[in-house]
């Protein structure tokens, strides 16, 4: 079966530096996969390359078997960025941000019933009372949930999230994972450097280190035994990682 998201021998260079090297991953329908690793290991770049947001130096990127720019069914994909500039310039209500999530392709306006669907998506992340509030007036965690609602309103088959827990309090994090658990059959690729409540949701982990995939398997197997210390980034079980080589 065609993986929903796949990279093959992917190399990405940014600003003259090699950020990803020979990165290979495949996420199949129904999987919930965590993309793990320390800061600067290339996790965010990998998902950006998957989505066609950064140029690929060599190798291949495929979503639903298609290369970005060549017939990817974008209506089935949703992305939750780590940070969004939405609402940072002109005041923007949470509802407007989520409604814009229903756009896809050349159609310049959201489909019929977009407002209702957007309101429901906000309710699903526990923000029904904040729909008309300007994004700038929301807390970091609430803003993250708005971005999640904007992705979920698309009713995607594939959800790609970049550090959805950054700056999110425990209650918000729980609510976020609960909203995901309610979506049966969703395929999910999540960049994380701290698992939090995602530990119960993810089935598989892929560990990146210095731009290379160093571990890929069931979540429990790729996590170090001391992974309950959430401030520590999860470390791979393989012993040949460059990071471990420099340890005394």
């Amino acid at each position: 079966m065609t993986p929903l998201a796949q990279t093959v021998h992917l190399d990405v260079n940014l600003g003259g530096n090699r950020v990803l090297h020979d990165a290979a991953l495949a996420v199949h329908a129904g999987e919930a996969v965590g993309l793990l690793g320390a800061n600067g290991s290339g996790k965010s770049t990998l998902v950006k390359a998957l989505l066609g947001l950064v140029p690929v130096a060599s190798g291949e990127v495929r979503l639903f078997g298609k290369t970005p720019g060549r017939g990817v069914p974008w209506g089935r994909v949703a992305y939750v960025p780590q940070v969004s500039p939405a609402g940072s310039g002109v005041p923007t209500s949470a509802l407007d941000v989520v409604r814009a999530g229903l756009l896809t392709g050349w159609r310049p306006w959201p489909p019929r019933g977009a407002k209702t669907r957007a309101a429901q998506a906000l309710a699903a992340v526990g923000l029904e009372d904040q729909a008309k509030v300007s994004l700038a007036a929301l807390s970091g965690g609430q803003r993250h949930r708005v971005l999640l609602a904007r992705a979920l309103v698309r009713q995607p088959d594939l959800l790609i999230m970049d550090e959805p827990l950054a700056g999110v309090d425990a209650a918000s994090a729980n609510q976020l994972v609960k909203a995901l658990e309610e979506r049966e059959g969703l395929t999910c690729l999540v960049v994380l450097h701290d698992l939090g409540p995602f530990e119960r949701y993810l089935g598989r982990g892929i560990v990146l280190s210095q731009g290379e995939v160093v571990a890929d398997g069931p979540l429990k197997k790729v996590l170090p035994t001391d992974h309950h210390h959430h401030h520590e980034p999860p470390r791979p079980v393989h012993s040949h990682t460059p990071e471990l080589d420099v340890l005394p």
Binding site: V72, R99, W106, P110
Partner: peptide, 23 residues
Amino acid sequence: LAGRWALFAAASDEDFAKASGLP
């Protein structure tokens, strides 16, 4: 005004809009 939603989406979060398949 006719293109307001697409213009808004592209202006407010270009990466997300691109990853939604918007031109």
